[in-house]
């Protein structure tokens, strides 16, 4: 398919029609999948879809926007904690509390951008990392949500999440499995929504401006785009979406701790690995990357730190010898 796209302009439109129908077909298949898929497949797909969304979002800000954040765990963590706060403190339904996650991440992103955008080039990366660490330390002081050790979603809250009973009846599942199906559908919606939004953004005039912004701020200014505003917009939107994903992930696990929710390894290192492996700055990169990553994760994650050591080395090797990732 990739080769077809490169041939000529006419086949490209045909190829993209084909690609579009394939995508729609896949989405349809994804929607009805819970009717016949096993619970463990649904859980795997949940993992793949959430990581894919996080990777697409990081690819948007770093690959397209040139803002290399290594503090994405701040948004996952704050999103997850906001969702927990909504459920535990306000008694909200977890599904609605996910929205709080998006809002909290958005609000955190404002001071973060304010601070980090002031930092030149590469110091931006450390700046985002610092803020993520500080946020983790502050959240760990929040005793009602378990402080440093964390907490779980109360049983009564997880028992009657909206839609779970219907799903359970529909597919003849137990409640726990039905919750996974719900989480999976939400993950599918977030993944598709995110990719559609990024695709639309890249095809618009702002997409070109974003590329110009990464390559050279002055060039962006000369094509008549307010570079500063576009940067803010992209960064805040990606943060809010990342917060939603974080909240969703922790709705599914139903157990949270600051170390896990603000883990630089899980929410930034893995995500960067996915993007680098698949090919940075390309929409299809994270899709390929997440599949490779999922395969490695399934096969080798039992090896613990050897596995992580290998991931680090693979990422270095890709940057040294195959800059465009395996998809190139």
């Amino acid at each position: 398919m990739k080769h077809a796209m490169q041939v000529t302009v006419t086949t490209r439109t045909r190829a993209s029609t084909v690609a579009g129908s394939v995508a729609l077909g896949l989405i349809g298949l994804g929607l009805i999948l819970p009717a016949f898929a096993s619970r463990s497949l649904i859980q795997d797909l949940f993992f793949i879809l959430t990581m894919l969304t996080l990777a697409q979002l990081w690819n948007l800000i770093a690959g397209y926007g040139g803002m290399v954040s290594v503090g994405q765990q701040a948004f996952v963590g704050i999103g997850a904690y906001a969702m927990f706060a909504g459920v535990i403190l306000l008694g909200w339904d977890p599904v609605f509390a996910i929205l709080l996650g998006g809002i909290a991440a958005f609000l955190l992103a404002i001071p973060m951008a304010f601070f980090a955008f002031r930092l030149q080039g590469a110091y931006f990366a450390i700046g985002t990392w610092v803020i993520a660490e500080v946020t983790r330390l502050i959240i760990a002081q929040w005793k009602t949500l378990g402080g440093g050790t964390g907490t779980s979603l109360p049983r009564e809250a997880t028992a009657d999440i909206i839609g779970v009973a219907t799903i359970a009846n529909l597919f003849d599942l137990r409640d726990a499995a039905a919750r996974d199906v719900l989480a999976y559908w939400l993950a599918l919606a977030l993944a598709v929504g995110t990719m559609a939004a990024i695709y639309a953004l890249l095809r618009s005039r702002n997409g070109l401006a974003l590329a110009a912004l990464r390559d050279n701020d002055n060039a962006a200014r000369s094509v008549g785009v307010d570079a500063g505003r576009l940067k803010w917009l992209v960064f805040l939107a990606a943060a809010a979406m990342t917060g939603l994903v974080g909240a969703l992930i922790y709705m599914q696990t139903a157990r949270i701790s600051p170390d896990a929710a603000f883990s630089v390894t899980s929410w930034t290192a893995y995500v960067i690995f996915i993007v680098v492996i698949g090919g940075i700055g390309r929409l299809e990169g994270p899709i390929l990357g997440v599949l490779v990553f999922w395969g490695l994760q399934t096969a080798f994650s039992d090896y613990g730190s050897w596995y992580l050591l290998a991931l680090g080395l693979i990422a270095i090797a890709v940057m040294l010898f195959a800059r465009g990732g395996f998809g190139a």
């Binding site: 290594v70 590469a122 730190s305 992580l308």
Partner: peptide, 22 residues
């Protein structure tokens, strides 16, 4: 491009931490 050196040093960070752990 500032991205490659950042990613390489980040990968090194992960590799070093886990290598030392082993």
């Amino acid at each position: 491009d500032i991205l490659p050196p950042l990613l390489v040093t980040f990968g090194l960070s992960i590799a070093l931490q886990n290598g030392m752990l082993e």
